[in-house]
Write a protein that binds this DNA or RNA. Sequence first.
DNA 1: ACACGGATGTTCT
DNA 2: GAACATCCGTGTG
Length: 213
Amino acid sequence: MIATPDRTPLPREFFDRPVLDVARDLLGRVLVHTTPDGPIELRLTEVEAYDGANDPGSHAYRGRTARNGVMFGPPGHVYVYFTYGMWHCMNLVCGPEGRASGVLLRAGEIVEGLEPARKRRISARSDKELAKGPARLATALGVDRSLDGADACAGPDGPFAVLHGRPAAPEQVRSGPRTGVAGEGGVDPWRFWIADDPTVSPYRAHVPRRRRT
DNA sequence: ACACGGATGTTCT
DNA sequence: GAACATCCGTGTG
């Protein structure tokens, strides 16, 4: 008999901690996004921490703007941004309020709602690629800017929640530099993942692109 | 498996 | 005008 996973939503206090602690602790937890196609659930296998005004890699480094406002708000909310003209990526805001730190959700395993996830990720060659990468993850979950600012601690009534799940054992957690982050921001080992998990995305260094005309 | 360039448009300088 | 917390298709090995 298989033990029942703990489906208790994480309380807001979970997110009201230093962002590095929250990032490590999120691995293995289960996200639930309720969509018109039904619930999609994802077990997190890879995340990155971004530490507000102290962090040259963070969207909050140069202060508050219309885009990043949610990062400056209370912990336990969803920050979604649009990038490269095509993609969405999602973060969970960490406390304390005003610190503007967050955890980018980079990859995971779809554990419920495979059919709707495949439908949104038609180019995926296998199920382990459905959410292998932050924009793929958001696509598979059906997340866009309409979810920006949503409360991740609202429980089953809200459109999005983070369940307790089965946290990864600390000895299974690996860390390294963040993917695609330029300059000094790409130095700190603030990317975390579960060792040997097939859904973790490959590391890529930041590549400055040549101008187009 | 890995490297490259194009796609696409919002955001900020 | 430039940068962008990326992805995909195509090429090579």
